[in-house]
Design a protein around this nucleic acid. Structure first.
Length: 510
DNA sequence: CCGGCGTGTCATTGA
DNA sequence: ACTCAATGACACGCC
């Protein structure tokens, strides 16, 4: 303090008022702050209790997704035998008696407004009623008495959950969202300021809109089916990937979401319940959704191309999520490939594409996957594309009613073929189009080749593309000629038959 | 499930 | 020796 005094007397600006250096004053401020904090916590706890009380009285309407008051709590109380539940509910029932519905609602609204600034998502878009529902998901459920456990109830619950998932996943828009999300996984920098290379599968869970839907966690705003489509796009860039998910609470919340009556339903002891809980407790990767029909795209077996010399490993679409898009699976790592290896890779891609088209008929119609797939670098500019922007690069609107595979098959196949070679060319950054490679006269082609410096893989690829392209045309011409020959021969045959008959007639006439 | 058909590709051959 | 077109044979997917 002496030193402070000396400095102060010398009129040295210490940047703060002198009272800052007063220990007693600081002590007072600290205690004040502490007291405020305690009050705040107390208030929060009180509000949480009130929420619990409120939602203990509500049941989720599975059709509308709304919470409705439970009709007859009395018989359940008769079933509940121990004090474990009643004790925990006593405070609630006390509150329930004191608070009207409107009061509860108002309180919840206040609660939400209080917590709103902490929300990561754009919660302002979410109607209050839904937000109130979300608070119910956060509410901690009281312990579940063993006496309430019922095998049939759990089985039904699991079935209902499965059905709900299937219904959710069957929504085309949602699928598109999810899939674009999956594809966008290649560039996590869009969503996260954290080091995307170190993203774990658990972190990725947070990118999954469905899981966000299921888990309106503490620092993540709730996203609901109603406003999911609209909110997701705008919300994605603000997802906080630094957050982590507690899988345990995720399971509980999932149950709660599906059926708030879970307070009366056993969770674990039944075998099916166990398996479901176990399933949910396991680390969830996005590829796990391949087990769902609608998510069966880019499954590991399909993407895992062991012959291609590419290490796709277990997370096919996340081959190298943090790496730049310019380093595709065909890219720099693939130098020294053999053509047959490329073929294997092609079949893999084709399989994935077809699968995607099947599973995501609307958003992935035809070749759209090429534009969306993280496997394909999009930064390569093609001459042919510059001249004629290909259809497959155009975004397909989700509400397009056009059914997939309505194209002429031959055209579709031809496009697929060129797309494959284009994929290869793109992957190896060949600076001109397949069309040019194939159709240019030898001199022009050689001149073009001499203009650029290619590595061995690029040269081999260009040679192969040219050979295949030319041979393809040659085969087409050959078959055409073959058919023409057949037609000609048949025509000759008819002529000769006619002449034979004519000669026979002349002979007979003579 | 089988067979026909269309298509792409490879290997071979001859110019 | 090399390139290229033609063609037989095969594989694959679709119907």
């Amino acid at each position: 303090m002496d030193l402070i005094d000396i400095l102060w007397k010398q009129d040295i600006d210490l940047g703060v008022g002198r009272e800052v250096f007063d220990y007693n004053q600081r002590q007072k401020e600290y205690e004040l702050e502490k007291q405020k904090k305690l009050e705040k916590e107390h208030q929060e706890q009180l509000l949480k209790e009130q929420e619990k009380a409120y939602y203990a009285h509500l049941a989720l309407d599975e059709e509308t997704g709304e919470f409705i008051p439970v009709q007859q709590p009395a018989p359940m109380e008769a079933v509940v035998d121990t004090q474990t539940v009643t004790d925990s509910l006593q405070g609630k029932s006390h509150l329930e008696q004191e608070l009207s519905f409107d009061e509860c609602l108002k309180m919840l609204t206040d609660t939400f407004q209080y917590e709103a600034p902490e929300m990561t998502f754009q919660t302002a878009m979410v109607p209050n009623t839904q937000i109130n529902n979300s608070q119910g998901f956060n509410a901690q459920q009281p312990p579940i008495p063993d006496s309430l456990q019922s095998t049939t109830l759990v089985t039904e619950l699991v079935q209902e959950i499965d059905q709900a998932w299937e219904e959710l996943l069957s929504i085309p828009e949602l699928q598109q969202c999810l899939n674009s999300h999956i594809d966008s996984f290649g560039d996590l920098s869009l969503y996260s300021n954290s080091d995307s290379m170190t993203e774990t599968s658990n972190d990725y869970i947070f990118h999954n809109p469905l899981l966000n839907l299921e888990k309106p966690a503490e620092d993540v705003a709730p996203v609901f089916p109603n406003d999911f489509i609209g909110s997701f796009d705008s919300n994605v860039p603000t997802v906080n990937t630094n957050s982590t998910i507690n899988i345990e609470s995720f399971c509980d919340d999932l149950f709660n979401l599906v059926d708030p009556k879970v307070t009366n339903v056993p969770l674990t002891t039944d075998s099916s319940g166990q398996s479901f809980t176990k399933l949910l407790n396991e680390p969830i990767d996005i590829t796990d959704f391949s087990s769902c029909k609608a998510f069966n795209v880019n499954s590991p077996t399909e993407c895992n191309d062991s012959d291609s010399g590419i290490s796709i490993n277990t997370s096919p679409c996340a081959t190298s999520p943090g790496q730049s898009m310019s380093s595709s699976i065909y890219g720099d790592q693939h130098y020294g490939y053999s053509d047959s290896e490329m073929e294997d890779m092609d079949s893999t891609i084709e399989t994935v594409q077809q699968n995607a088209a099947e599973k995501f008929p609307v958003p992935f119609a035809d070749d759209t996957i090429y534009a969306l797939s993280p496997l394909v670098p999009l930064d390569t500019c093609f001459d042919i594309e510059a001249q004629n922007p290909p259809e497959n690069e155009l975004p397909v609107k989700p509400d397009q009613s056009k059914a997939p595979f309505t194209k002429d098959k031959s055209i579709s196949r031809q496009e697929a073929r060129f797309s494959r070679d284009e994929q290869r060319a793109k992957a190896l950054k060949v600076p001109f189009s397949v069309d040019k490679i194939v159709n240019l006269p030898v001199d022009d082609f050689n001149a073009l080749m001499s203009k650029h410096q290619f590595n061995e893989a690029q040269l081999a690829l260009i040679r192969d593309i040219r050979r295949r392209g030319k041979n393809k045309v040659a085969a087409q011409n050959c078959r055409k000629r073959k058919m023409e020959n057949i037609v000609e021969l048949e025509s000759d045959l008819d002529k000769l038959k006619y002449e034979k008959e004519k000669l026979l007639a002349e002979k007979g006439g003579i």
